[in-house]
Structure formats: C-alpha cells, structure tokens
C-alpha cells in the first residue's frame, strides 16, 4: 500500500522525556561490546530517535517488521551527557517509491530540558512492499 504523499512536511509531537542515566549509558555501551564507563556512545541518541520513529510508524499504522533502516546520520551540537533529559520531534522530509518500496526520509530534532538542540538525527526508512 503506497504511503500518503501528504505526509511530507508533517511534524509529529515530541516523544516522552528520555532520562540519560549512568545505567542506560552503560547498558547501551555494553550491548555493542564497548567498555562502558561514563562515556556516552556516539550512537546513543538512537534511543530517543527510535522512540520518535516508532511513534511515527504507529501513527501511520506501518508494521515495524516491514521496515528496514536505510540511512542514519547524526549531527551533534554538543555531546550527550548523563543527566540529560531528551525528547525527539520527528518531521517527515521526503517520500518516494522505488520498486514497490516506500522510502521515507525523516529528520528528528533532539532537544534537552532547556529546549536547546543537542543533536539532529536524519533517518531514512525503507518500507518494504508485499513480498
């Protein structure tokens, strides 16, 4: 089923607050085989980015198992630190169809409790059509 083209430009509400804790940082680092410690893995913001992507998929009734991550880029305005309270707000920036798959481009602004942008995460999702 093709995705509604009017999605492009639509902004979705911000995710609930994600509290960055020493435990969440260590668990994330350990899950990718890292040493852990106090260092926040550079891809850690995917946690809140993914929450925004998942809210978007639920709102559009798209099944997660038909989604493959096509591209992911982070531009960090400052490093994420323990104690941050982050939310992500997603906007659909593009939509195209290639060979029965929908390619959905998104950009999520990740902000801290003061509203300052911490990171901009752009993601492309491939929604695989019927197989």
């Amino acid at each position: 089923m093709p995705i509604d083209a009017s999605l492009v430009g639509r902004a979705f509400p911000p995710t609930p607050v994600h509290a960055v804790t020493a435990e969440s940082v260590a668990a994330f680092a350990a899950s990718v085989g890292g040493a852990g410690g106090a260092t926040v893995a550079p891809t850690y913001p995917i946690v809140v980015t993914f929450a925004a992507l998942q809210d978007f998929l639920a709102a559009e009734e798209l099944e997660l198992s038909r989604i493959v991550h096509g591209d992911q880029r982070f531009r960090y305005h400052r490093p994420v630190a323990v104690g941050d309270e982050l939310t992500a707000a997603l906007t659909v920036t593009g939509l195209r169809s290639i060979g029965g798959n929908d390619i959905i481009s998104t950009s999520s602004e990740i902000v801290d409790a003061s509203g300052s942008v911490v990171c901009t995460a752009t993601a492309t999702l491939v929604h695989r059509g019927g197989v």
Binding site: P42, G70, D71, R75, Y76, P79, T122
Partner: peptide, 9 residues
C-alpha cells in the same frame, strides 16, 4: 568528541 556520524546501510 564526535561531531557527525552516519552512513547508508
């Protein structure tokens, strides 16, 4: 400090 990170899968 990493300022940008990304790629296409």
């Amino acid at each position: 400090e990493v300022v940008e990170l990304g790629g296409k899968f």
